[in-house]
Amino acid sequence: MALFLDSAHAADARTAMAFGFVGGITTNPNLMAQTGRKALEVIAELTEICPGPVFYQLSGATLEDREAEARRFLALRSNVALKIAMTSENIGLAARLAREGTTVGMTACYSAAQTYLCCEARTAYSIAYVNRSTRLQGDGLALTGEMRAVADACGRETRIMVASLKSAREVVQAILAGAQDVTIPLSLLKEMGNHPLSEQTIEEFARAAASA
């Protein structure tokens, strides 16, 4: 299992990498837009900060545009990975890139049937939006479990990554539901390391040490 940072900001990446256990970075067009910079520049910087896979999400208007875009970004560094929105048209592109050795994550998967196609295409990841699926379809955690069951039944190397997680509890629930990899923003990563009772206990220890 790997934990990824979901951010396009270099400062976030440096903080996350300093933890020593964050395995990679995922980005998307919304996160890219927040930087106010050119995507090529952002990904180039992130791949220098992070030794693991750094995912860039294709956004070209046509299939041909998206393939050309993929080639441009893959030429940057060896640890560039690609996120591709799940559609019948895009799965063929994903399969071609996966055969060439590219790490591909099919994003915006909202059904276990889509995960099955990811398995057949040999993509590295089928990515579920847990919280968004719950809001729009009823149960993002159940979807995560179904996706994992399909991937296991296929016996492929496709892994279930979960995104759109809004709380520490939702992260844990997604893992228990079958998620193999998790991507979260830096704020949630930090939140998960803290707990009011932990801080209370630390304060008690500090008082005891001071009085010793």
Rank of each mutant, 00 (worst) to 15 (best):
A16P: 09
E45A: 13
A128N: 13
Q180K: 06
T87G: 08
A108T: 15
A209E: 13
C119G: 11
R169A: 15
L31Y: 03
A174Y: 01
A149S: 12
V172D: 05
Y125G: 00
R135I: 06
T15I: 13
N30K: 14
A206R: 14
D65G: 05
P196N: 12
N194G: 09
L141N: 03
G23P: 02
A8L: 04
A153D: 10
L40K: 14
G140K: 00
L165W: 01
E89R: 14
A113I: 10
M106K: 04
D152L: 13
A112H: 01
S198G: 01
L197T: 09
L197A: 10
L58M: 04
Q114T: 03
T123K: 04
R96K: 15
T27V: 08
C154V: 03
A11L: 11
E204M: 12
L46M: 09
L197N: 03
A174I: 02
C119Q: 03
A13M: 06
M86T: 13
V54F: 08
T115S: 09
A128M: 14
M161I: 12
V80A: 01
S126F: 02
P51T: 07
G60V: 07
T15R: 15
G20A: 04
D12Q: 04
G24V: 07
K166G: 01
S167I: 10
A177E: 01
F205P: 03
T144L: 06
R99E: 14
A153G: 11
Y110L: 15
L189D: 00
D65S: 11
V162S: 09
R66I: 00
A168C: 13
L136I: 06
Y129V: 06
D6S: 08
E203N: 11
H195L: 02
S211L: 10
C154Y: 10
T35L: 06
E64T: 11
R37L: 14
L188R: 08
I160D: 00
L117G: 00
A68S: 13
D12A: 05
T115C: 12
L136G: 00
F73A: 04
A212R: 15
N30A: 15
T103C: 11
S126M: 06
A33W: 05
F205C: 10
A70Y: 01
I84F: 14
S78M: 06
A81R: 04
V104A: 05
T102E: 02
M161W: 02
A68L: 12
S187W: 10
R132S: 06
V104D: 04
C119M: 04
Q173I: 00
E69W: 05
G101M: 08
A2D: 15
L186M: 13
V172Y: 11
L117Y: 09
E157M: 06
R72F: 00
A153C: 10
A81G: 08
I25P: 10
G92K: 13
L136C: 04
E170L: 09
A16K: 02
E203G: 08
G92C: 05
A209S: 10
V172H: 09
S111K: 06
L165P: 02
T183V: 15
M106G: 00
E64Y: 07
T35R: 05
L93S: 01
V22L: 05
S164N: 02
I175H: 02
